[in-house]
Amino acid sequence: MGLANDLNFYLTLSGMLFAIGTFGFLARRNAISMLMSIELMLNAVNLAIVAFGAFIPSLQLDGAIIALMVMAVAAAEATVGLAIVIAIFRNRKTPLVDEYDAMRR
């Protein structure tokens, strides 16, 4: 009861997780960390979706379907992303995006 029974509480938590993910994406320089930050952002969105579904009766079914879709898309994105990270790691021997600057020199 109390806080845990309020939709706005979950939406605020989702917003905070999303903000942490955004900060991580902008502040970290390791490609893997940036990928993890994006996953955190997507999971924050999923939390918001599930919260909407749980608190608004008419959105319950929609919410479950959208959350499943988002998980599938996130998995596909992580697959492609990790493949690209492995490819560039073989070329450059570093996961730090700062050092991927061959075209800006």
């Binding site: 490609a31 940036m34 992303g81 690209i84 990270v85 560039i88 070329n91 061959a102 075209m103």
Partner: peptide, 13 residues
């Protein structure tokens, strides 16, 4: 090719 993968990772991220 280093350029191709570098472009790809920036595009992807």
């Amino acid at each position: 090719d280093g350029y191709s993968t570098e472009g790809a990772i920036k595009y992807f991220l």
